[in-house]
Structure formats: structure tokens, C-alpha cells
Design a protein around this nucleic acid. Structure first.
Lengths: 341, 341
DNA sequence: CTGAAAGCGCTTACAG
DNA sequence: CTGAAAGCGCTTACAG
């Protein structure tokens, strides 16, 4: 590959002048500029970013640590990051903890965890990334996982307990409220809830949103209408079976993810309940699968792409020393109405 | 961040010696080595890879161009790339064409295409990546998309018509043969096929594998048993309806992807056919969704992770000047037997 | 308007 | 065993 010296020699000017032309800096004569640009074109010269980075002490590179790339939320978030990065000429260095692959739903203890993250983190720092985006698998507290450093970090799809850390998430409370409220307004007043494991931030907030919607419509909270699953299809099926055998069975079930909602659908079929005539079903996450159920599942769409975009946007703001208004950002979800409600 | 000079000053040695210690090169006294290492530890010194890259003319960085990160095959392939990269201390620079997002299933013409790829490609070259992995959405011919360059490229989940280009794919022919043969051996001799769009390499090879399996069992090929869908759920449903209304209806249907197989399942339910008693169904791709159908879908698992791993492994071999035995590599798929067959 | 020179943080051939 | 110095490909303050 040609370098700036080659171009300078060919144009019979100094490297300084070539650099000035390339970066539209300093006064350069029109003649000289044209001559240089022509040669740059001909030689297909591409500036060496590595050299530039070293000199400028700025790599225009963002590091991404994703807990598990193959979990459904990750690609869409990174897609948002990529889009913004491309538009703003940032490069993305991707590292993958492969957490789910290694541990399934069992999270390792913090120390094992830190040990796993350390090498990725150091690799990124060695590469002089200007900032790091950490993408969680679940919305949970990842305090203390990343070592201290003065490289700015933005957390997304997770959070820390530190108020000064920046995180981008979606509003679980509001989404759950909206979904419940939507069902009620549709006339389904006996809305049951199948929760995910309650060690999750999301599950808690969604529960609260559900309660609030009931309250707002003066519907008495019925503890028999709340079941706890484990986020998996099977648990949705089992909990639905329980719910639908209640003497006064619910007219709608809100499941905290699309997998469990699938289980509900299966239960409804087995019990020959018409969906949505006799039972409305609402999911959460808008995973690809939700549109392939029969009937197609109504669900809550997560703003994953926007979370990615917002993460890198915010991170770059921090890098540039701009003021961030709020450290804990929550984006809104969207209700997707399909055939199950 | 501390640099090598800081360490040298603190240890009262030259930067050369620090460098030698850090890279286990040259004779260094045990005392000196220990002293330096201690200071390195204390200061949490991490060598600046950018500087090292510039000096060594080697970045230990691989560029990935993925046609669309949110299409199902991409994350798993990249997962394989990441795993190998981490083990071998390579960094991954990720770029995303967002092709499906922008165009859906309509591929743009080659020129539009090239225009989209160009900036990503140049960004990677500017960053001095040592090689590039190009990940397709579909197995198709992407000849002429990437500009000429002497940076080595490995194509995966796609190919070019150039024999000297390296590509990593899976064996469609064999997979389809195996699936068909499996059904026959299970006693389903009337095996129908729902193909995807026949402009696809995969569809063609899978068709051939299907025919070969019939032949090997001396089963007459029945043209009425082959239908062409468009890879989508709905088309699977419609084609299955056609097939199942044949006077002599097939006892098994092999669909060329899990989405269309889902449509087949839906058709079978509507016609009250017992699966797998009266009709066996076999899918392709082992997408997440396949294990959530009821009954769970038997399908062909694609070696995505291995394709990623093999891609980077091969690429690094090329970078290091090692001999590659074959340029067109095909990995084997695996039959996943579940409840639909 | 243009160029010579210093310097970013490393590595390495060479001298001592 | 250790260090001085050159150089990787850029940018930039400064001089002319």
C-alpha cells in the first residue's frame, strides 16, 4: 500500500502538504491540491488509520462487549450501533463473552465473571478504544463486573447500582402497564399475569406496571391470577394450565415473554379455548417467533435498535465532553397488535 | 495511561529493555526482569497496540463484513469467529451492511451493492486489518462485490465463481440427501419436497440431494411431489395444502427451511392429520423457532459456529502464508430428530 | 502557500 | 546484559 510519503514524492511536495490537502487544513494552492488529489485517486491511497490514531491519540474506535451475541436481543442492538458508527465514521471492535453458551441461565458468581471479562476489557483498552458499550443478556445489575478505568462506558440491556454510570434501557413498567391497560380497554377485565423469574429487574417492574393498570381501572388485584414461570416455553404452558383451570378463569393472559406466551397458546389449544374469543394472549419481546405462532401473537416490541443507537450516541457525547442530561435512560416499547388479542 | 517510557523511567532502565521483558525477547537479567514486571503490574501498564501495530506492520485484527447481522445465521457464525479470535488474541472489527434491513429479500443490483460495500471495505483497509471475512445472508454468488486488493478474504455462507477465492459453506446436497434418506428409512416412502426459490444455490443442491436419496432407494421421482415456495411461512402452508390434497398424498414433507415447515405443520393441523403418524415433517436450518413448534420439528442443523471458526482459522492460515488444501470448503450438517418425524 | 522537523508509543538491529 | 537510535505513517506548530 502506498503511504503519504509516496504520494508526496509523486506530487513533488512535502508530506505536510499532502496531509493538509487530505484533511482540508491550512492554505494550499488550488493547483497543488488538484495535483495531489489526482495522484491520491490514481494510487487508490487510503490513509493509514493506525498511524493517524497513534499521532492523534484518537482511534475513532468503540469497543463493544456483548454478554452473548447469540441471544436474541444482541444482534438488533449492535445493528443500531453499527448504523450510527458507520454514519459517523467510527469503527466497532466486537468482543463476545459467550455467557449464555457457557453457563446457560445460571449466572456465574461475580469473580468468575470478572475473570472472564478482564481479558476482553484489556484487549479493548490496549486497542485504545475511546469508549465501551456493554450489552447485557438480561436486564440485571452488573455492578463491579468491569474494572475501573477512565475509558467511558455505557451499559445497555443491563445496569449498575452506581448512579453515575450511564445505562440505556427500555421502560418495563410503562410497557407492562400499556399492555395490561390495552387488554382491559379491549374488554378483557380478568387479566392474568405469567411472570418470569422474580430475581429479574424486568419482572419486578412489569409486575408493578400490571398492578397499576388494574388499579387505574379499579380492578381488584387477584393473587390467583399471578403465576411465576422461568421464562421458558414449558413453564408458560404449565402456568397457563393452572390459570385456566381456576373456577373463574381469566379472559386474558399477559406473559412476560413470547416463549411463555407460546406455552399459553399451546395450553389454550389443548383446552379448546378460542383465541382471542375466549382468551386473549399477550406476549413480550416481539421475538421473531411471535409472528409465527398461530394465531399470530400480540406482543410488546422492545426498542433494541434504538437502544444500540442511543448507546453509541451517548457514549460519543461523553467522549466529546458533552453534557449528558440523564444517566439512566429508558426508551419506550411499542405494542404490536396481532391476532391473539 | 502509562506508556513504556514511564515504566522505563520508574525502573531506571531503557525502553528497549522494558520492551524486551514484555515480549520475552533478548537476554535480560533476572533482577531487571523482576523489577520491570513488578512496576508493570503496579502501574497496570497495558502496551499500546496501536503503536505496536504501526511499528510491526501487523495489527492482529480481522475485519468482518456481515451482510445483515440480524438475519438468523450471522450471530452464530460470528460467535465462532469470536471464540477463535479470543483464543488467538486477534481483534474483530465488525461492519454490517444491513442488507436485509434495507432491501428485504430483493437483492440490489451489483452496482448499488458495490457502492454500499465500498466504504465499509475501505474503512477496514484503513484500519489495516490483516484479512477480511465476508458473511452472506444467503448462499449465493457474490462475485465482484468486493474490490480487488491484496488483503486476503474468506467468504462464508456465500461464494464467488472464482476458483481461487476461499469459501466456507455447508454441504446442502449431503444434508438434503441425509434428511430424505432418513425419512425413507423410517418408512416414509412418499416424500414430498417444498423447495425455496430456485435462484438459490442451496435450493438446487438440496433438490439434487433429495433426488439422489429417492434413487438410491429405487423410489420413482414424482414431479407432483415437488413444490416451490419462497422461503416464507405462508408459502409452506399453501404448498402443503396443495400437496396434501393430492389423491395419493405424501407421507412425509421435507421443507427447505423451518419457516416453510411451520406452514406445513399448520396445514397438517387444519386437515387434522396426525404428525408424525400420518405425516412426517422435516425442516431445515434448525432455527430457534423449530423447537417451539408443536410437535417439535425435526430439522437439519447448520454448522454455523464451525463455519465461523473455520473461516477465521483459514484466513489466519492464509495470512501466515500457510498452505490451504482446498479453497472451497464444505462442512457437514447434522440431522436433529425431534417429534415431527 | 509550502516544507523541515518533532513526536505519538512502540520494536529491533546494533554497539558496547 | 543493557541502551542509544532509527523508524513505522501520520499530524501540526512553526519558520520562511
Amino acid at each position: 500500500m502506498a503511504n503519504i510519503k509516496d504520494i508526496a514524492d509523486l506530487a513533488k511536495v512535502s508530506v505536510a502538504t499532502v496531509s493538509n490537502v487530505l484533511n482540508n487544513r491550512g492554505r494550499v494552492g488550488e493547483e497543488t491540491r488538484k495535483k495531489i488529489l489526482k495522484i491520491v485517486e490514481e494510487m487508490e491511497y487510503k490513509p493509514n488509520r493506525v498511524a493517524k490514531s497513534l499521532k492523534m491519540n484518537k482511534t475513532h474506535t468503540i469497543g463493544v462487549i456483548v454478554e452473548d451475541l447469540s441471544v436474541f436481543n444482541a444482534p438488533e442492538i449492535i445493528d443500531g450501533i453499527n448504523e450510527f458508527a458507520e454514519e459517523n465514521d467510527y469503527s466497532i471492535l466486537l468482543t463476545n463473552l459467550r455467557l449464555f453458551k457457557k453457563f446457560g441461565n445460571q449466572f456465574p458468581d461475580v469473580d468468575t465473571y470478572k475473570e472472564m471479562v478482564m481479558p476482553l476489557f484489556h484487549q479493548l483498552l490496549s486497542n485504545q478504544v475511546e469508549g465501551i458499550i456493554y450489552i447485557g443478556i438480561h436486564r440485571r445489575n452488573v455492578s463491579g463486573i468491569l474494572p475501573e478505568s477512565n475509558t467511558p462506558v455505557v451499559y445497555t440491556y443491563c445496569d449498575t447500582s452506581n448512579d453515575t454510570d450511564i445505562s440505556i434501557n427500555y421502560d418495563d413498567y410503562k410497557a407492562s402497564f400499556d399492555a395490561t391497560n390495552y387488554l382491559i380497554k379491549k374488554g378483557y377485565r380478568e387479566v392474568a399475569l405469567i411472570s418470569g423469574l422474580i430475581n429479574s429487574e424486568s419482572a419486578l417492574e412489569r409486575f408493578n406496571g400490571y398492578c397499576k393498570a388494574l388499579m387505574d381501572s379499579s380492578i381488584q388485584f387477584n393473587p390467583n391470577y399471578v403465576k411465576t414461570g422461568d421464562w421458558e416455553f414449558e413453564s408458560g404452558y404449565m402456568m397457563a394450565m393452572d390459570l385456566l383451570k381456576e373456577e373463574k378463569r381469566p379472559s386474558a393472559i399477559l406473559a412476560m415473554n413470547d416463549l411463555m406466551a407460546g406455552g399459553v397458546l399451546k395450553a389454550a389449544k389443548e383446552l379448546n379455548l378460542d383465541v382471542p374469543g375466549e382468551l386473549a394472549i399477550f406476549g413480550f419481546d416481539n421475538r421473531e417467533i411471535s409472528s409465527y405462532y398461530t394465531p399470530k401473537l400480540s406482543t410488546v416490541s422492545l426498542p433494541l435498535h434504538d437502544m444500540g443507537e442511543r448507546s453509541i450516541k451517548t457514549l460519543i457525547d461523553v467522549i466529546n465532553g458533552n453534557n449528558i442530561k440523564t444517566n439512566k435512560i429508558k426508551l419506550l416499547c411499542e405494542l404490536i397488535e396481532r391476532d391473539s388479542s
